[in-house]
């Protein structure tokens, strides 16, 4: 177990360096530079521009800049935002709970609907339910997120329905401390009347939008994994014991079908954080997705680099957790370690 973790973390090191190189290089490949953008519409004289670049440390040769950056990162310093002058790490973790809350809700939405849907489709293979579900899953998977978000907003957030708000995490009239950073929990803790419902109604549409692709993927994966498992001999054995179908399918078959499903759920976390960028921008959700987009358009090099690095780190940790889960679900994997 310890050896497994050490190996996994060792494997993360090259990935980590790869990400520093890519994030460092890509943001600099974009036209424009921070000094010009900081100066704003009035523009800046070439002398002042050079002065600013020197001040920010961007006058040095590129390899020197990179080495300095990596040296800082290794010491746990991701630098300060060029715009807010705040440490990147601090900004990231102030905003991250918003993204995390949205991602968790989207994942719960996708799993709670996708898993049973996939199971039913597999059990009733070839039925109208199966065909409808697989058709909708393909549609859901292929839909552009921003288009889907706009359709939902037009349907549910504008008259005549006007059910849900379209932006932010909570109504502006609520104001309270946020000890956890999770609006649902904080609004409950605050004890303010209606705050929780306001937070919840703000979450509905972003959750659906962000959860649609994971929902489609989970449903399809569950269906195919279940189809494979349902024809296994041990499922027949379970039925031969006289067990109820719910137990045969929900315990004996599902437990074996979970491995591929957990794998895609793990991989989806990466997609989810990527998808969050679009979803957060559309719904003005104050999370890291929106922050990243803003940072890119301001050429805020340290923020973009730091943000990418942290997101990548989170995805890697999720993947290791998934591999640990395999062993929990399937003893054959546990004992091989």
């Amino acid at each position: 177990m310890l050896r497994f973790l050490i190996t996994k973390f060792a494997q993360m090191i090259p990935t980590f360096f790869g990400i520093t190189v890519l994030s460092f290089a890509f943001i600099r490949l974009l036209p424009g530079d921070p000094a010009t953008l900081l100066a704003g519409e009035r523009g800046v004289t070439p002398e002042r521009h050079a002065e600013l670049m020197a001040l920010l440390g961007f006058d040095k040769p590129i390899w020197q800049q990179y080495l300095l950056y990596v040296a800082d990162v290794l010491q746990g310093d991701l630098g300060n935002s060029l715009v807010t002058r705040q440490p990147v790490l601090e900004e990231f973790f102030t905003l991250f709970p918003a993204t995390l809350e949205l991602s968790i809700c989207a994942m719960i939405f996708a799993t709670v609907l996708g898993l049973p849907a996939g199971i039913i489709a597999a059990v009733k293979r070839g039925s109208w339910f199966d065909h409808t579900l697989m058709g909708s899953a393909l549609t859901g998977y292929s839909m552009p997120i921003f288009w889907w978000a706009l359709i939902l907003i037009i349907l549910f957030s504008t008259p005549p329905l006007s059910w849900t708000p379209v932006s932010g995490r909570i109504d502006i009239l609520y104001f309270f401390d946020q000890p956890t950073g999770f609006m649902l929990i904080d609004s409950l803790l605050s004890g303010e009347k209606g705050a929780f419902w306001s937070a919840l109604s703000h979450l509905v549409l972003p959750t659906i939008v962000l959860g649609t692709i994971p929902l489609a993927v989970i449903a399809r994966q569950t269906r195919s994994a279940m189809l494979e498992v349902l024809s296994e001999d041990y499922v027949r054995t379970a039925r031969a014991k006289g067990l109820a179908p719910s137990r045969v399918i929900g315990l004996h078959a599902l437990r074996n079908a979970l491995i591929p499903v957990i794998t895609v759920i793990g991989l989806l976390v990466g997609t989810l954080l990527g998808g969050a960028i679009l979803t957060e921008t559309i719904f003005a959700w104050p999370g890291i997705g929106k922050w990243m987009v803003d940072s890119i358009s301001r050429r805020d090099y340290p923020s973009v680099q730091g943000g990418l690095l942290l997101i990548a780190g989170i995805v890697m940790i999720v993947n290791i957790t998934v591999e640990l889960l395999y062993g929990l679900i399937n003893p054959r994997i546990r004992y091989r370690r």
């Binding site: 296994e232 001999d233 041990y234 027949r236 014991k241 006289g242 437990r255 074996n256």
Partner: peptide
């Protein structure tokens, strides 16, 4: 089934649930 009338199968390695 499974109580008064039981059945065993050909492939013991795959007839038991690995989990």
């Amino acid at each position: 089934i499974g109580k008064d009338m039981a059945m065993i199968f050909q492939e013991p390695m795959t007839s038991l649930n690995p989990c």
